[in-house]
């Protein structure tokens, strides 16, 4: 059902003023056509099938150099994370453990996400400063840190789609409505619902600084 029934009517009424809503010239004269150069400037997203990848290439070796200069201060020389900055390599095999480490190599389903994210958001504080070849090189370096590609690899627009991440099959779509259907439609107990109540744990006081790596995370 439409959330905006009255609005639909209003728009319909409004379009009626300008004539039938089908023909292009009847579209409300608001906004303007986007120019190809404008779309190209902003449309930098990359999909898993490779759509959106720019022309270019970069080697693991070039990536290592760039990474040491521009990324390692926060993410560590090997992507292991310096201090509390996020680790972006390693953690393979940790997903079922007490402290899962979710990195492109251990968790991310698609290499395109790494390319896309570095290109749009990194280095932190100097985003959108890397050339396409540099993003290929850095992506290659990070993938080699997670043993996804060999150290002599040159990553390019042409061979990108062949890169498969180990955890690509590790995801499934939201199924809470079936997997958790027991949370629906139950009649909640109101009286004498349990016999005893034990306190199992107390909050850690706010002023206690937890161990840096073990502490709670905001993602």
């Amino acid at each position: 059902m439409s959330k905006f029934p009255r609005l639909a009517l209003a728009v319909a009424a409004c379009l009626a003023i300008f004539g039938p809503a089908v023909a292009q010239q009847q579209v409300l004269p608001l906004g303007r056509a986007a120019l190809p150069a404008e779309i190209a400037a902003w449309d930098i997203d990359v999909r898993p099938d490779g759509q959106g990848l720019p022309a270019g290439k970069g080697s693991v070796k070039e990536g290592e150099q760039l990474f040491l200069e521009q990324c390692a201060a926060c993410h560590g020389e090997f992507g292991e994370g310096a201090g509390r900055w996020p680790p972006i390599a390693g953690g393979v095999g940790s997903l079922k453990s007490e402290s899962p480490e979710k990195t492109p190599g251990s968790y991310w389903p698609y290499a395109s996400t790494l390319f896309d994210y570095v290109r749009r958001a990194m280095p932190y504080g100097n985003a959108q400063s890397l050339e396409a070849d540099q993003v290929y090189a850095i992506t290659a370096y990070l993938l080699s840190m997670s043993d996804v590609i060999p150290e002599d690899h040159v990553l390019s627009k042409e061979n990108f789609a062949a890169v498969k991440l180990p955890n690509a099959g590790g995801f499934f779509d939201d199924d809470r409505e079936t997997a958790e259907r027991q949370f629906w439609g139950r009649e909640p107990c109101m009286k004498n619902c349990k016999t005893e109540v034990k306190i199992l744990g107390h909050a850690r006081a706010l002023d206690v600084t937890p161990d840096e790596k073990k502490g709670p995370k905001v993602d």
């Binding site: 079922k96 979710k102 991310w108 996400t113 994210y117 590790g170 995801f171 779509d173 939201d174």
Partner: peptide
């Protein structure tokens, strides 16, 4: 198709005990 951006893969996916993760858990 969805783009599988960083905030819907690395983040905002719900890792379960068996190591698999639920994605697109928007609601």
């Amino acid at each position: 198709q969805p783009w599988h951006q960083r905030e819907e893969t690395s983040k905002y996916t719900d890792l379960l005990a068996d190591g698999r993760a639920r994605r697109f858990t928007w609601i």
